[in-house]
Design a protein around this nucleic acid. Sequence first.
DNA 1: GGGAGACAAACGAACGTTCGTTTGTTATCA
DNA 2: TGATAACAAACGAACGTTCGTTTGTCTCCC
Lengths: 191, 191
Amino acid sequence: MSHTREDVIAAAGRMFAAKGYHGTSMRDLGRELGLLGSSLYSHVGGKQELLVEVVARGAKLFQAAADRALATEGTAADRLRALIAGHVDVVLDHRDEVRTFLNEARSLDAEARAAVVEARDRYEEAFRTVLREGIEDGSFRPEVDPVVDGIFVLSILNAIERWYDVSGPVDRSELVARLHRFVLGGLAGGG
Amino acid sequence: MSHTREDVIAAAGRMFAAKGYHGTSMRDLGRELGLLGSSLYSHVGGKQELLVEVVARGAKLFQAAADRALATEGTAADRLRALIAGHVDVVLDHRDEVRTFLNEARSLDAEARAAVVEARDRYEEAFRTVLREGIEDGSFRPEVDPVVDGIFVLSILNAIERWYDVSGPVDRSELVARLHRFVLGGLAGGG
DNA sequence: GGGAGACAAACGAACGTTCGTTTGTTATCA
DNA sequence: TGATAACAAACGAACGTTCGTTTGTCTCCC
C-alpha cells in the first residue's frame, strides 16, 4: 500500500489546520501516514512546498465559489446571499484547507504570501462589487461603505471555521439563514 | 541603564504580536531590548511564562471594558453600543496584548489555555446577556439567537485588529459608528 | 513463462542549525 | 561588600533536510 503526493498534501492540510505550520514537524506528518519524516521527500520537495500546495487549494476553492455566486441572476441582495451560502459550503466541506489558508498564510515565504494576499483581495472584491450594486439600486443604506462593511461581512464569514461544530445544534441551512438575516439586516436596516 | 521584568513582557507582547510565539526566539527578544537571549532569564522564568503574562494582560483588559460597559444606564441597545465602543478602545489602545491574546493562545500549555477559554467565555457572556435583554424588550428581532448572533458580533470585533490601520482613512469614531449601525441593524432590521 | 533491469517508495542514520535553557563569571551600583 | 544584571559559553533536544541503501513492483526480452 503506497502513498501518493496528494495523500501527503491532504495529511499536511489536516495537520497544519490542527497544530499550525510551526507546530507540525515532518516527522509528525510522516507518522500521520505511517511513514518516517524522511520518506515524505519521495513525494514532495519540502515542508514549505506542502504549505504552498494546501493554501493554493484553499484559495482556488474560495475563488471558484465567488465566481459561481456572482453569476447568480437577480438583485444584488440575491448575489450577496449566494456569496454567503457559497462561502459556508467551502468552509464546511473543506475545513482543513480553509483553516490553513486563513491562519497559516503568515508562515509562507514572501513570494507565496504575496500571492495569497492577492487572491484574498480578489475574493473580497466580489463582496465589494455586490455591495456597490446594492447601494446603487437602493437595497442597502446609502451610507454603507463597500470597503468597511465588506470587511464586516467577511469577518463574520472567516470566523465560522473557528467556532462552528458540524455535529452541534445549528445545521448548515440554519447557519446560512441566520447569516443572511444578520448581514442583510446590517446593510439595509435603519440601524 | 537596566531593564525591568515589565520591559521584557512589553517587548514580548510586541514580538509575539508581530511574529507569533513560535516565530519569536528568546534571542530575537533579547536583541529587541539590546540584550542576549540568556540575559532575559534574569527577569523571567522562561518563554512560556512570557506568553502567559502577555495573554493575561489582554484578558484583563477585555474583562474590565465589559464590566464598565455593562454598568451603562439605558436600554439593552445602549449597553451593546457601549460594549462595542469599549472593545474598540481596548483593541486600538493595547494592540499587542490583544493580538497575542486572540492569535497566540493556542501556543499556551493546557492549563493556561483553559484559563483563556474561560476568560473568553465570560467576556462573550456579556454580549449574550445584552442580546437576551434586547430580545425581551423588543429592541431586537425575536428570532435573534443570543449564542449565534453573539458570535457574529464578536467575529466582527475580534477581526478589527487584523485590518484596521490607525493612520488610515477611517478614524476611531467613524469605525465605532459604522460598527453600531451594522450590528444594531443586523439585530433589529427586517433582514 | 521467467529472469534482468529500471524505477519509485520507504527506510535509517546522519548533517548542520536553531531552539529554550542552564551554568559560571564579570561588572555595576547601592 | 553584596546583591543584581548582564554576559559568554555550553547543553541537550528538536528541527528540516540529505544521503546511501533496501524493498517491492512493473516491464521487457529471451
